[in-house]
Design a protein around this nucleic acid. Structure first.
Lengths: 203, 203
DNA sequence: CAAGGGGTAGACCGATCGATCTACCTACCT
DNA sequence: AGGTAGGTAGATCGATCGGTCTACCCCTTG
């Protein structure tokens, strides 16, 4: 007998190619053009599915929006966890990598800024977009603060929030301003804010 | 004889109470709920005007959006010009005031973040919202750089852009995160970034 | 007085919105 | 062999979207 309900041990939730196509298309359109600007019609047309299929997987547009942001959130979690994991004995290196990974990998694909900030601008109150934005921002801040604590930093919480500010500002600036020194300015600012509160010369 | 065309010397362009009501209502709704989320119907209902009146003053919704952001832009210009003007012999004081004025006056009324960033998230390409956002951000950055130059700062341009990052991040954070130390963290970061590049101790 | 600009009132346009419906097909698992 | 989940196709729903239209009113100004 053994396990009964699932035959596939690695993917308990079903995947469905159509579902993936819907999500990938929604991700692209929502991010590039905004959530409210993209209608269901656009999504089903470009994903090559029918209306019924979409509503079977995502009962409402808000559910699709939530899934879109969940996807983005999972990606960010994985990336940051990976960086921290691969610098397990080097918190200072992990902090630097958090900055350079952004400039190296993400500035290109984040031409339209932060998907959470952008989506939050389109909704009010406790809409799922705003809740998820607050969640991931709080989580990232806490990861940074943890690294600072591991370094015996003088002010882990305050500095983590300052680092989040410059990180946020850098992503927004990258999507709005014409600044070809953005990466350098950002990394320099990031490093300076960290080192200002580290214990006296480590060597 | 004197002036002929206008009996009111101070307002050459006609004001029209209805126009003001439309703009004030649009400002409130667009900022609080997002541009795409608010329809013309909502605006004319809450402004107490008719469809025809609105379209007489603003031929299209985009024109109304442009006027909304123009209003915001004029306010920011006036505020920053006023701060710089009132500290004409004290650029360092003007820089500090730029930060504290934000925390003192604006954080309360900017609960929904920056109207230019928010509006930009809803549109693509060279929509008027994105153009105006870039314009005012570039202008503010230049004002900050000017103050830094007046102080013989080591890196006026780069520092001005770093200050814009933390300022942007602070406004966004204020609209998304639950952080009761935001103002202090922001001001401390702001001051530190300025002083790091100033010429050796002035006293 | 006559003209014209700003205003009201409300019907109306085609298009699109998010969402629901019926009906049928197909592949895989028990 | 039969059941079920996932898929296609296309019509349809009421609501709302941005925008236009006609008709009438009131006040100021020349």
């Amino acid at each position: 007998m053994g396990d009964v309900l699932t035959r596939d041990p690695e993917v308990p939730k079903r995947t469905s190619a159509a579902r993936e196509r819907i999500l990938a298309t929604a991700d692209r359109l929502f991010y590039d053009e905004g959530v409210q600007a993209v209608g269901i019609q656009r999504i089903i047309a470009e994903a090559g599915v029918t209306r019924v299929t979409l509503y079977r997987h995502f009962p409402s547009k808000d559910d699709l929006v939530a899934a879109y942001l969940e996807r983005r959130s999972a990606y960010d979690h994985a990336q940051i966890d990976g960086i921290i994991e691969s610098h397990r004995d080097d918190p200072r290196g992990a902090l630097s990598e958090l900055a350079t990974a952004l400039t190296r990998d993400d500035f290109g694909s984040l031409r339209r800024g932060c998907p959470f900030i952008n989506a939050s601008a389109e909704f009010t109150g406790s809409h799922v977009a705003r809740v998820m934005a607050r969640e991931i921002r709080s989580w990232v801040t806490e990861q940074i603060a943890g690294l600072l604590r591991a370094l015996d930093h003088a002010d882990p919480r305050g500095t983590a929030e300052q680092l989040m500010m410059v990180r946020t500002g850098a992503v927004v600036s990258g999507s709005l301003d014409a600044n070809d020194h953005l990466s350098e300015d950002f990394v320099r600012c990031w490093e300076r804010l960290i080192d200002a509160g580290l214990p006296a010369a480590p060597r």
